[in-house]
């Protein structure tokens, strides 16, 4: 097994009195593609958002690059975030900036890369997802799938050590899901460490090296996709898979 990139131990998160994460422990190794599935409200997104400290955990530790980032100061946290990419359900591109500026903003501001270098890199990345000709466009002129591909490129421009995906295809029209998943598969193939919250079971089955089933703030079950989808142990996972598989079959029929 490769070296551990993220070591998460006893992670808890409460919002007021509501405890959303009830002590999660797992290790994410370099090059792994970890997919988190589970019913909504189970804590998947919150868990993901704790990893780059968009949510401050209430308890527990996250060791990244050998330091516990939960207890780190603000400056360290900013640096840690700059080394983790994050892709949101609603893209969150900056509407007042062109696509090129969306991609180059962070490298220039955070890393101090000069404009020419940042733009060259951005164009190369945009080319890789087939959006080079949109560099001068603005986010509102793009389709949902294009926006999400730009959002991925924006994260990649920072050369992250890990990419976090928070339901990256949930806000997309069905016909645009594929183009985003293709980019993600490509990333996985090239060895990017990825943590993905998704309802795309087929993606989990085909791409994940490990699947976590989160339910009620716990990691209820984890293992290879083969183990989880082929031989689910808990009744809750069986029930969950039964539900999502039904919808997937229905979608297949629609196609």
């Amino acid at each position: 097994m490769n070296e551990a990139l993220l070591k998460i131990d006893g992670l808890k998160k409460s919002f007021g009195r509501l405890e959303v994460l009830k002590g999660l422990t797992t290790t994410i190794a370099e090059g792994e593609v970890v997919v988190m599935i589970g019913p909504s409200g189970g804590g998947k997104s919150t868990f993901l958002r704790c990893m780059n400290l968009l949510e401050q955990p209430t308890e527990g530790s996250i060791v990244f690059n050998g330091i516990d980032i939960v207890a780190a100061d603000e400056k360290t946290k900013n640096k840690v975030r700059s080394e983790m990419g994050m892709v949101f359900q609603h893209f969150n591109l900056f509407p007042h900036l062109s696509i090129l500026d969306n991609v180059t903003l962070a490298p220039r501001l955070v890393r101090g890369v000069d404009r020419a270098t940042a733009e060259r890199k951005a164009m190369e990345l945009l080319g890789r997802v087939g959006l080079a000709e949109k560099a001068k466009a603005y986010p509102q002129q793009l389709s949902g799938g294009q926006k999400q591909r730009v959002a991925i490129v924006r994260s990649l421009a920072m050369e992250p050590k890990v990419m976090l995906f928070d339901e990256p295809t949930s806000a997309l029209d069905p016909e645009m899901v594929g183009e985003v998943l293709d980019v993600m598969k490509d990333l996985a193939k090239n060895g990017m460490t990825m943590v993905v919250v998704t309802h795309e079971m087929r993606f989990a089955r085909d791409v994940a090296s490990r699947v976590l089933f989160l339910e009620g703030g716990h990691i209820a079950e984890e293992g290879s996709p083969k183990e989880l989808f082929g031989a689910p142990k808990s009744s809750r996972l069986k029930e969950f898979l039964g539900k999502v598989e039904l919808t997937e079959v229905r979608q297949d029929k629609d196609l």
């Binding site: 968009l54 640096k79 007042h96 955070v110 920072m158």
Partner: peptide
């Protein structure tokens, strides 16, 4: 401004103030 804008800025490693200045205030 949607909260996602601040989150996107912070997730890229920008500080709160920089995100405020470059992302939130212009919009």
């Amino acid at each position: 401004i949607d909260a996602g804008q601040m989150e996107a800025g912070r997730a890229l490693g920008l500080s709160y103030w920089r995100t405020m200045l470059r992302i939130i205030l212009p919009q």
